[in-house]
Computed example of a mutant assay.
Amino acid sequence: MTSAAKAPVLFISHGAPTFALEPGLLGPRLRTLGRQLPELKAVLVVSPHWQTKNVMVMSTALPETVHDFGGFPASLYALQYRAAGQPELAQEAARLLNAAGFAANCDDRRGLDHGAWVPLLHLLPEAKVPVFQVSMPLGLTTQQAVKLGQALAPLRKQGVLIVASGSMTHNLYDVRQSGAQPEAYAQEFATWVRTAVLAKGVKQLLDYRAEAPYAERAHPSEEHFLPLLIAMGAVTEADEVTLLQGGITNGVLSMESYAWGIE
Rank of each mutant, 00 (worst) to 15 (best):
S221Q: 13
T195W: 13
T169C: 08
L40Y: 03
S135A: 04
A7I: 03
S257H: 10
Y81V: 05
T249E: 01
V146E: 02
L21I: 09
L152T: 07
P87Q: 05
G139N: 09
T141P: 01
A231E: 04
N250M: 08
H170P: 01
G101Y: 10
C106Q: 07
A145V: 10
A74E: 13
E183R: 08
A151W: 03
G261V: 10
E237W: 13
T236Q: 08
V197H: 11
S47W: 04
P23K: 03
D107I: 09
K157L: 14
G101W: 10
S3M: 15
K147Y: 11
A61D: 15
M56D: 08
T236L: 12
Q245W: 13
R156N: 08
L172R: 00
T142Q: 14
P125L: 07
A186G: 02
T52G: 01
R29C: 13
M58G: 03
G166P: 02
E237H: 13
S165W: 00
A7W: 02
M136F: 08
T191A: 15
V241A: 06
Q51P: 06
L205F: 04
K41P: 07
I12H: 01
M255C: 05
G24P: 04
E240S: 15
R176M: 12
G233E: 12
G85I: 00
A180S: 04
A151H: 04
T236S: 11
P154N: 07
A104P: 01
T195D: 14
H170D: 03
P220Y: 10
R95L: 15
G24T: 08
L44A: 04
I262V: 12
D68L: 12
G70Q: 05
I262S: 05
G111H: 01
H219F: 12
R31C: 14
L152M: 10
Q245H: 12
K6T: 12
L148R: 01
D174M: 11
K147T: 14
V235C: 13
S257R: 06
K53M: 15
A4N: 05
Q177L: 13
A42W: 01
Q177I: 13
G139V: 11
V193C: 05
L152P: 05
G149K: 10
F19S: 00
P8N: 15
V202P: 03
P213L: 08
A196V: 14
R156H: 08
P119I: 11
P38S: 11
G15H: 01
P220C: 11
A74L: 14
G179L: 06
L161A: 05
L198W: 14
N250T: 06
T18R: 04
T60V: 06
A94P: 09
Q181A: 13
A210P: 04
L124V: 08
L89Y: 04
P125M: 06
H49F: 09
Q204C: 09
A78F: 11
G251K: 00
A74V: 12
L124F: 06
R31L: 15
K128W: 09
Q91P: 06
A196C: 15
A190P: 00
